[in-house]
Nucleic acid binder design. Sequence first.
RNA 1: GCGGCGUUGGUAAACCGGUUAAUACGCCACCCUUUCACGGUGGAAUAACGGGUUCGAUUCCCGUACGCCGUACCA
Length: 506
Amino acid sequence: MSDVRVRFAPSPTGGLHIGGLRTVLYNYLFAKQHGGTFVLRIEDTDQTRYVEGAEEYIHKCLAWCGLQPDESALQGGPYGPYRQSERKASYREYAEKLVSSGHAYYAFDTSEELSKMREDFKTPDNPSPQYGLITRGKMKNSLSLSEEETKALLDANTPYVIRIKMPDAERVSFTDMIRGEVHFDTGLVDDKVLLKADGMPTYHLAVVVDDYSMKITHAFRGEEWLPSAPVHILLWRYLGWEAQMPQWAHLPLILGPDGAKLSKRHGSKYGFPIFAMNWTDPKTGEINEGFAERGFLPAAMLNILALLGWNDGTEQEIFSLEELVQKFDISRVNHSGAVFDFDKAKWFNHQYLQMGSAEELAALVKPYLIENGIKPEDAKLATVVGLIRERCHLLPDFVTQGSFFFKAPDLIDKESILKKWKPEHAAFFEKLREEWKSGQESSDVKDLEQKFEELATTNSIKKGELMLPLRIMLVGGKFGPGVFDIMQIIGKNEAASRIETALKAL
RNA sequence: GCGGCGUUGGUAAACCGGUUAAUACGCCACCCUUUCACGGUGGAAUAACGGGUUCGAUUCCCGUACGCCGUACCA
């Protein structure tokens, strides 16, 4: 195993949405193609936002699509603990170290004082003033206060945070694996809180300390983190670890149809899932649909996500996980955000629905049928699935496309039959019913069709006039595979009985 | 406002100085199908704007515009 170590670091505050899943995928692909390790670390330093079950949920999603981490809180590993909340001790130590080296300072401002500052310094030209270069001197901190004042405050157990002291005018640069050189002027970045009043680190301190101590070599995360990258770079430098700093890659955002960062509200607004799997928020009881339950195959999901922001430069669109591991190239990842297209996603899933054996597919389809009150027999289900798979895009499509193989349609499209209905048609179907009811079961589709044609001719009715009514009687509507294929599967007897109920209804 | 990152058809995108600017999804038409799909063929539809650099810019550079992200004791 190489020493390449990448990590996915979600916070356990809710469901895993597809942007997160794609980050996992890219992490995983990079780790695997370099023979490295994929680490899952939970960023749970904010107790107030912690959601029960969220960590297990993330594992469940990763298991669903086969991207299991090599190291995590649940499975262990040499660089644990894998939950930030359990690594508490070292964070304070490093924060204090930064204070003594002059790169950080104590800040005693209450939240009221902070909002007052933001209010006071707010102008139309500067709607959100920062705690930094121009304001820090006016606030209550160990930079503006004398040493004695600071000591007194500390001795009195005044709550404080530790903030990084951004240099006045320095240029911080780093090479992003996707974007190349990125530069920031430190005087324009604010003094981020590193250690909160409750003694817990913020993300900024925690990522750096954890990435260092867990020997992370490559850090891939969403583009929304780019603005805080200079803080992290400086932290690596001030802590004396710059030589071990991971290589960064900031992934382009996944956008909703309106062009904004994909969020929960897009799901409800546009009617497609945004989470990998169903997620019910235990606090609010809010239910969010997942791609898994919507009927996406995990392999299709991975393929969709891989291509949302990356391609190998050829016209190939269908990639297995193995192929992705082999062909993925982080430097070919696009720079701009990508709008998620649900139609295209369905197309991908359709492609994957055509692969593999009918038996395997049938097993995936079965739960959806059972959910709809149908208990299919396996062998029959497999034939049905084989017959209808090409007209299905999502797993639940098999219910609408396949139910009538197992039970008579609840209601039939009478209007479509009645449109061209004639008395002699009724007579014909009555005869057909009689014949099929008592007739032998035929296993040959051609034979079935031939006999049907013969009967039509002897009654001097054109076959074409009878096909649609027949279909609707058997299926309930104008859809489905060939009528005689359906006939063969449901059997003459069942067909006869469906004709009977249809005739009565007419 | 400030900072960062972006900008090729409706969407995803190829090309990495010379092309009739691929391809896929979606859309439209036709074919196949006595249903609906699938499939097949064809079609409409794209380089934000302005300057440079160059024999030549979609491609390189600089502006402008627009979009997104960030600007929390959240990650």
